[in-house]
Design a protein around this nucleic acid. Structure first.
Lengths: 205, 205
DNA sequence: TAGAGTTATGGACAAATTTCACAAACGCGA
DNA sequence: TCGCGTTTGTGAAATTTGTCCATAACTCTA
């Protein structure tokens, strides 16, 4: 085990392992090997062993890894051994879809607030949430101590939303708007843009 | 210019450049530099120059890059100098959001078919599309010659959908289901899973 | 036309990442 | 308890990726 600085590329693979392990656990499996896990996620066994061993000696020679133990450890490492409250900004089609999405809670997240700047939408309900005014967002997020937000507003509004989120103390942003965001160091951003993902594949067609 | 094998990691950055350049062009800009572009996308100028120069000498010393020219070249390289027809499988919340999304066409894609296996949904309309039966999907895709598909079905159904897509000759899959897909070589898959993206950030919180 | 300031290009170098290969550890059956 | 097959963890090698730097090309001003 070496608790040095972990490269981001390794951190990025951990959620993949976590997801696969969670699935194995759901299927009632008790142990797995780097070999088997690798086949599931399409990553070499050696790399998986190396990645995991960065955090500790979780495996056992001859047997492999205890799925539940490794799950616990990965959740702990990724800090999803708890439920994070998440704010959603943008109550359009994508925002609605995310608000209704059932797949967050067993992965460590829960949407607790939805914001929009459209006066028509403010006050309306999505699932259980009342859409709130973006104007009051900074205050609301601060007092609730929320650290994670998702942006599903149009591209031209995304940067100013991001600025407000930063101001409100948000430290992680999942951005669905097709634009790069400018945020200070210490704030993480992940991008989801289907067109970008598709374009990455058309090169090979 | 060197037309050797381009590393996937470079291919993956091209859509980012493309998106930023498209935005600059929309704002009426004519030229940019690796420096400026780098600030927009958060990548070092040196890396951008190196990436771009893999494909040809598109820049001009002292001036930088002509935005429209570079746009054309990148579109050509990524093969999005055309509109790709895309099939959408899964008419749930996410499928609906994607079907209504306006951001595909000016990035090289257009959804042309929507499938689902729910008898209740088949025949219903989303935007302009009539939801079709997954049973007839392979035949439909084959005869239409479609190469790209998006999967927005529940995780447990995703692999069998992927198998059908492969059988139908699909070569690129954008998978929204939170599960790794097993596909033969030659078929590309990109994953979009908000929980995974979020978990990648919580590590740093 | 000359000089100052920019900027791309390409090769050399450095850093990061992945793969390899093997000792050590473990489970199991005889 | 012994031997065999399996699997981890890890140092070392190989490969990939990123950065730096010297050079050349271009713009602009005067």
């Amino acid at each position: 085990m070496k608790a040095e600085k972990i490269p981001d590329i390794i951190v990025g693979r951990l959620p993949i392992y976590l997801r696969a392990l969670q699935r194995m656990a759901d299927n009632g499996l008790k142990t797995t090997s780097s070999q088997e896990l690798g086949e599931h996620v399409g990553i070499s066994a050696a790399q998986i062993r190396k990645d995991i061993s960065q955090f500790g000696d979780f495996g056992k020679q001859g047997t492999g890894y205890s799925i539940t133990y490794l799950l616990d450890k990965l959740r702990e490492i990724l800090k999803v051994d708890r439920i994070w409250e998440v704010a959603l900004v943008g109550a359009g089609d994508m925002g609605h879809a995310l608000a209704r999405y059932q797949g967050f809670t067993n992965r460590g997240f829960q949407i607790v607030m939805v914001f929009d700047n459209d006066k028509e939408k403010i006050g309306q309900k999505i699932v259980g949430f009342t859409i709130e005014d973006t104007e009051k967002m900074v205050e609301r997020l601060k007092s609730a101590g929320i650290k994670i937000a998702m942006i599903t507003v149009p591209a031209q509004a995304a940067q100013s939303v991001a600025d407000k989120l930063v101001q409100a103390g948000i430290k992680a942003i999942l951005n669905y708007a097709p634009i790069n965001l400018n945020v200070p160091a210490g704030v993480k951003v992940q991008y989801i843009d289907p067109s970008t993902h598709l374009q990455r594949m058309t090169y090979y067609l």
